[in-house]
Write a protein that binds this DNA or RNA. Structure first.
Lengths: 153, 153
DNA sequence: TGGGATTATATGGGCGTCAATGGGTATATG
DNA sequence: CATATACCCATTGACGCCCATATAATCCCA
């Protein structure tokens, strides 16, 4: 499986380390399995993460913008300077930077939510609540949900 | 990772030295890891920097402007004549020229902001404010920032 | 097929290494 | 000769690597 799926609740130890769920590690390309990128989610108080490969895609896109435009700087600043790379140790653990932990309200435990091509890290309770909320929103529009699930390709 | 990513806040010591963040040093080609170039940003009161190899890329971008336009001369002059090269010592530190420090309002501390293929050096508070401002501008066009981050392939 | 054995995962902790920083001294350069 | 700058060494704290353990999952063979 090459997608981030399911959810996991892991602990942060005294040194600040937390295990990246094993199934998530397996999604990362064997080449760069010891490095991930993290950034603040745009739409929620959670952290989003993925493998470094994705970053190169983003870099390419930004590079195609007009170098002398204001947009270029805005994108470049908001993305490159806000993204952090983190090393995953041999045991599959990594450190969540303090600033990101603050942003997401994470203290001693964190929840990983698979999102397909990326994943989110939440303060456990907030994460569960978010899942409920989004499911509730979806069910209000059952029709569109059914369409999304059944309409293949 | 071969991109300048994330942000770092380092101190300037009595001798005027400041550490280039370790992850930034690793972006520089092993051959010229002890030399960087610095110049005043055209668009903000910050210093921009990169490895010497990037000069060619800058030249190309300027060359792509209309040769007979006023912009061409302005950019060409503003950038090329203002570029300075600086040596990075064995411990990874370098000196920011006085004129550039003045331009950016830097005194005892500086913030490094990754910008992909180059980086910016800011007076810490101004740098943080700039990040907020540019993010605010982008969030007005939420869709485009999300596309930049999530678009596949 | 059941139950013991092997493997994997999450977690804990010791310790060496590296990054950021400080300072002394040599060297260069005008 | 005076000032600036590079090299060398030292310190501190953070982080990566190694080893260890407990629990869970898987295997495997009688």
């Amino acid at each position: 499986m090459d997608l981030f799926i399911s959810k996991y609740f892991n602990k942060i130890d005294k040194k600040g380390r937390i295990s990246l769920p094993s199934s998530f590690r397996n999604v990362l390309p064997k080449a760069n399995r010891n490095e991930i990128i993290l950034y603040k989610s745009i739409k929620s108080s959670s952290i989003e993460g993925c493998g470094v490969g994705r970053l190169k895609e983003i870099a390419k896109r930004i590079n195609n913008l007009d170098f002398f435009s204001e947009d270029y700087d805005d994108f470049s600043t908001s993305i490159f300077s806000e993204i952090v790379t983190t090393n995953v140790d041999k045991e599959g653990r990594f450190l969540i930077p303090e600033e990101l932990k603050l942003y997401a309200g994470i203290k001693t435990e964190a929840a990983f939510f698979g999102q397909g091509h990326f994943f989110q890290i939440w303060e456990p309770k907030q994460g569960l609540k978010n899942t409920e909320d989004s499911r509730r929103r979806l069910l209000k529009e059952k029709k569109s949900l059914r369409m999304m699930l059944t309409q293949q390709k």
